[in-house]
Design a protein around this nucleic acid. Structure first.
Lengths: 231, 231
DNA sequence: CCGACATATTTGTATAGACAAGCAAGTGAA
DNA sequence: TTCACTTGCTTGTCTATACAAATATGTCGG
């Protein structure tokens, strides 16, 4: 099986950049130059270079030429999947325990964060997630009833609030915050945390159609859970 | 200014999906069908559909057809920028204090993580980063001398190890892990942490040309630092 | 020296055609 | 019925050409 010509050109360019032969900001050979070098049609070169530009490897400027793109802003991208998916991906068993699932009146602070009136109705759930029977995440969540009216009648031992909410209220914006904190008494007890063990907390606020759909605090015992990955 | 034909086709497809007209898994009209509908050449349709497939909107199968892709994996992407950039972006003053900068012999555990021989030479630096004079990050870093031979002669009060390393050893792979932990005595003292305050730690291991280039542990006081963002 | 203009280069888009390769459904034989 | 084969549709790749649009450069006149 032969690799397509456009892919060979992409590989050639990537190799030259990776080897340091062409550095950031350098002018890359023009399409016509590569046409001569590889003995292919210009459209083939165009596809290769255009795809590399779309992938962020190169930048192009009509009339000027193609350049090696500035190395991606020195940053680490971290992907956080839903806890149930993550546990299943590890081949382990996910189970959930619904500790609370009720309507509450919003106090001032909560109302402000959720974008509702003080004293307004909110749904509140507290769910403990287990991995192979071991508690791994305590999910403390408030939901805007306007966007998920039948939240209270869901069975969250079967599908997670996350899955339900993304189905009924497609999210348009997400705010998140990761912090380390000391757990409150409930969290420490439910998560069976040892003395003085800190907590890794993910705050997540999701918007649907420019309203706050849901706000969640996800507590994890430091010893049993980290966010990790690679790229 | 007219929008290109291929872009119009992309918009048409995206609109149909967004409107719920075509749902997840549905068969999308074939290229020849779209050629008739838009009165363009097949290559033009091909480009539009191929780009949407590359973007993850559609999936294609030679011989079978083109389908609406499964909805994006429910996940949160978190971007972590370098501490100096982040502080400067807030309009604050970043300053660094070099606490250690020396060559050390690798013990077994360190050697394994860095991919060198036990007892081999490694560079070690310990740098305290301040935001407006307040300690905000303790950077504990090991560096492979083979990839950054003049690491010890750098002035890290001027540019960060991060900046130096990405310049001399273009990174090919990154592994990361975020965890909450209790700080050791040095970290607690240097970061001026209050009693029992937990630590938010980012572990980061970078590879260059399939060798480990550097490994860092970045300690942050929980009360003064969180990873946050939105999308 | 400097600005206006012409010119060459480069990328951006589009066409019409061609052949290959993979899949699915229909067809026919055992 | 079941299996093998054919046929048609679909995507995957590539070509050669064409014109448009943006940029850079050189030239010439003032």
């Amino acid at each position: 099986m032969t690799t397509p010509a456009y892919q060979q050109i992409k590989n050639y360019v990537l190799a030259a950049i990776h080897a340091g032969e062409w550095r950031e900001g350098d002018l890359v050979p023009s399409e016509n130059e590569l046409v001569k070098r590889f003995h292919v049609a210009r459209m083939t070169v165009n596809r290769a270079i255009r795809e590399l530009a779309a992938e962020g490897v190169l930048t192009r400027s009509q009339g000027a030429g193609t350049f090696v793109a500035a190395t991606k802003y020195q940053s680490t991208l971290i992907e956080i999947k839903s806890i149930a998916d993550e546990i299943r991906a590890r081949g382990h068993v996910h189970s959930a325990e619904v500790l609370k699932l009720q309507a509450v009146k919003a106090d001032a602070a909560l109302a402000a964060e959720m974008g509702v009136a003080t004293g307004g109705r909110l749904f509140h759930s507290l769910i403990l997630h287990h991995e192979n029977g071991v508690p791994i995440q305590l999910e403390d969540r408030w939901v805007n009833p306007a966007l998920a009216s039948d939240y209270l009648s869901q069975d969250f031992t079967v599908s997670t609030p996350n899955e339900y909410l993304t189905r009924v209220a497609p999210l348009s914006r997400v705010e998140y915050r990761i912090e380390a904190s000391r757990p409150d008494r409930t969290a420490r007890a439910k998560l069976a945390m040892i003395r003085d063990e800190p907590c890794l907390v993910l705050h997540r606020r999701t918007f649907s159609a420019s309203q706050v759909a849901s706000m969640a605090k996800l507590y994890h015992p430091a010893g049993r859970y980290q966010f990790s990955g690679y790229f």
